[in-house]
Amino acid sequence: MWQMINRMLLAWALIFMSAKFALAGELNPERRKIRVGVVFDKGGRDDRSFNAAAARGLDEAKRQLGIDAKYVEAMDDNAYEPAIRTFARKKFDLIIAVGFGQAEPMSRVAVDFPEGRFALVDAPSSQPNVRSLLFSDHEGAFLAGAAAIMKSATGKVGFIGGMDVPLIRRFDLGYRAGVRHMQKGGTTVSNFVGVTADSWNNPPKAKELALAQYNSGVDVIYVAAGASNAGVFDAAGAKSKFAIGTDSNQNAMRPGLILTSILKRIDVAVFQTVSDVQTNKFTGGKIEFGIANGGIDYAFDRYNEGVFTPVLRSKLDELKRQIAAGVIKVPDYYVEADRATFKK
């Protein structure tokens, strides 16, 4: 009996080892088989928006670079640090934290593991072994505002943010600036789903907010609320009005009613970082992704080609060029002066 079990174990061990060797053999010898740990925030890996964009970059890296990736979805704020720490303790080659809420936990772990390499999406960190992947969300929101007011028949457009935090205020301010840039008298109505982290997961509430906006004469809504976005798209469907998606390409969620989606290329940033670790080019510090380097863009595909007209697109492309060249300076909520000058 024991002999049999032993034999089986031995056989399994052999199978595993050969599988490992086979895999290693396939890989490019320059590409190390590195281990990457990712901690998603509360929206979850499949929020079809923010986290999903990071997940796509990870999947791409898995496919192309042959890395070993593990991920954790934090259920609440207190789960971030243990998750990051566990990866660090297991000596993962790169640990990526997705979301501004993980800034502090990641910094704490980074101090304790100076040998570790960390990447943080959406928030700055002063630790030398943390790479901050920052996005110029206000530039994307500016494009959304311009597109919304151009499409609007009523001259009144809406913004719905998830949680009321500076990051989302940054979207709001950029959006307002975009609206005002295209039409001096354009009105923007802004709502936030809530003030707690539940806001990212509350589609019914987001839908109510959207219905209230549509009923007040708004005919295009830009929404940055994680998994709650789906509620706004439902309202758009019910009222046959337009919505603009965020972070990932959400055009397919309501074909013909989602004017466009503002893309935040977290996937590119994540892929780049993984690749850098693999080729020993990883550095700490901040990397900014904006319109100028393709980190922020808008989505155009078969789902919105009917409503996102060539006129709209050419205007947006022009705005993109102007922002990239610095001709247009989009106000940034993170900059005190911008916040003060751009009062209603």
Binding site: N201, N202, P203, A230, D234
Partner: peptide
């Protein structure tokens, strides 16, 4: 009613207390 009538999918934590 939250996931079927008031929206069209289930999201984690959607009951929200």
């Amino acid at each position: 009613t939250l996931s079927v009538l008031l929206s069209s999918s289930f999201a984690r934590g959607m009951t929200g207390g």
